[in-house]
Amino acid sequence: MKQIVSILLVAAIGILIFSALYFSDETLKFNEYGNVNLDDRVSEKYIDKSVNGNTEEIIFGETQNAESGSANMVTSVVVNYRSFDTLGEVTVLFVSALGVGLLLNGKRKRKNLKDAPNFILKQGARIIFGIMVVFGVYMFIHGHITPGGGFPGGAIIAASILLLYLSDDEFRVKLSAAKAVESTAGSLYVIVGLLGIVLAGYFLQNFLPTGTVGEVISSGVIPIVYMLIGLKVGSELSSVIDGFLTEEVEG
């Protein structure tokens, strides 16, 4: 009975969505897939880096002191043009990690793994752990010139911590260290924003020279902010993993 009612409701919602998007009047109709004119959209300004009225073409490896020096346009939207949104997003992630910490609190110890890991597994996982951490750091340092950035880099670091948890039944993250990294990175992000007010006039405004598009040391505060985000996300997700793989000790 419940299934039938759900199917009817879902069918009603589906008909509503499809008819509103694809079968309504010509004026209200949704753009066909792929048939988009970017000149109608604000994104055109983000691609040309012309929000402040710059009209020159941006060339990889040549253009200097562009408005946002990031070669990766998604990064320039996330950490430069809309950095305030990202600060809110990082705050949401912080609050959810705080909630997990509050719910799974108390004195805790590791859960026993079903099969005790042997020597080869432990040592092999440690070697892979080092490579994964280096890759995660590479990812958030190069967030402005290659795909990736702070969030995937932090997630890769947290995944390397998860690998250690699964391969070693005595390993635990030092929670105090994770919290110290997290709070330092979070406060430094806000401090970078406040420095923007002092030096450039707006919160989170870029106040460093943006350099040549496509070089590692370029685009002002973007690499700094992405590094802070990467450290923050990595330590937050590591403490969440710790909450799920431990159990409360009685008494």
């Binding site: 691609i47 073409e57 490896g61 998604v74």
Partner: peptide, 11 residues
């Protein structure tokens, strides 16, 4: 949407 050495112009 990433400028690289292959597609180097914003145009």
């Amino acid at each position: 949407p990433i400028l690289t050495s292959n597609n180097e112009s914003s145009a």
